[in-house]
Simulated assay, not measured.
Amino acid sequence: MKSTQLSESFNASLKDYLKFDHNLPQLFMHFERMVNDKWYKELEAEYDSCYWLINLKIPVKMLIQARNIYTKPIFEKFQEQFVEAVELNITNCVEDNGDFVYTLTMYDAFGNYDNCKKRYVRKGSDNKLFCSCRMIEIKGVLCRHAIKVLRDIMNIKEIPDQYILKRWTKELDLNV
């Protein structure tokens, strides 16, 4: 699947640069131009992620930390989740074999909980969080539900190291 996607992506990129009526020298000239353009865009993206600071919607310690460690696209996703966590409400807590299960809801347009989707965050005895939305496992970024439990229940103001995936950070260590 991955090789098919890579091949299709590469073919789509080539279409912008290559034409069927090009001879061999033209083909290589246009191919080299495409490689140079891709390399330049990659350098621009790296520069942007390292030297441009993204505006914070809410100046809090967790967002400042996230802005400093995450790449720009991941930080934007995290910040969106953080802002949405502000509107969530923890409506119930149940103990289940030493774990705590929190029910989170958001008001609907009419100001009640009844028509809203409920999400459940399980806090294990080791303080590890698991959310029913599974965003942490699928995308590798804390979801709004887990952020709400971290901040309001556990009183944690920074992202715990266990939730920071190396692949989403600016300081990607390629020697590991």
Rank of each mutant, 00 (worst) to 15 (best):
D37E: 14
W39S: 06
V60R: 12
P59Q: 12
I90D: 06
D108P: 12
I90M: 11
Y47M: 04
V176K: 06
L14A: 11
Y120E: 07
Q65R: 08
D16S: 15
N36Q: 10
D16L: 14
N36G: 05
R67Q: 14
D48M: 00
H145C: 06
N68V: 04
I58Y: 10
F10K: 02
K166M: 08
M1P: 10
S49W: 09
I138E: 14
K123P: 00
R33Q: 10
R134H: 15
R151I: 14
I54W: 01
E80G: 03
V121S: 02
V86T: 09
V101H: 09
N89A: 05
G98Q: 07
S7T: 14
D114H: 12
T91H: 05
V176M: 05
T4D: 06
L14P: 01
M1N: 06
L104S: 12
D152M: 06
C143S: 04
Y120T: 03
A85E: 07
C131M: 07
F130P: 01
N97S: 11
C133M: 05
L53D: 14
L88E: 10
S132E: 09
A146C: 13
L43A: 08
W39H: 09
C143V: 03
M1S: 13
D108H: 08
R151C: 12
I90Y: 03
R144P: 09
D96L: 07
C93H: 01
K72I: 12
L129K: 01
D173M: 06
I136Q: 11
L174C: 11
R119V: 05
K72A: 00
E171Q: 08
V141I: 15
L6W: 06
I58V: 15
Y70F: 07
L129S: 01
E44R: 07
D99P: 10
E158D: 03
D114P: 09
N23H: 01
E137D: 14
L104E: 01
P25K: 14
D37T: 05
A12E: 09
K118F: 03
F75D: 00
L88C: 14
C131S: 11
D96I: 14
S49C: 07
K61H: 13
T71V: 13
D21V: 13
N97C: 08
K157Y: 12
L63W: 03
Y107L: 15
H30Q: 07
L172R: 15
V149S: 02
D21H: 13
D96H: 15
D152H: 02
F20K: 07
E95G: 03
D21C: 09
W168P: 00
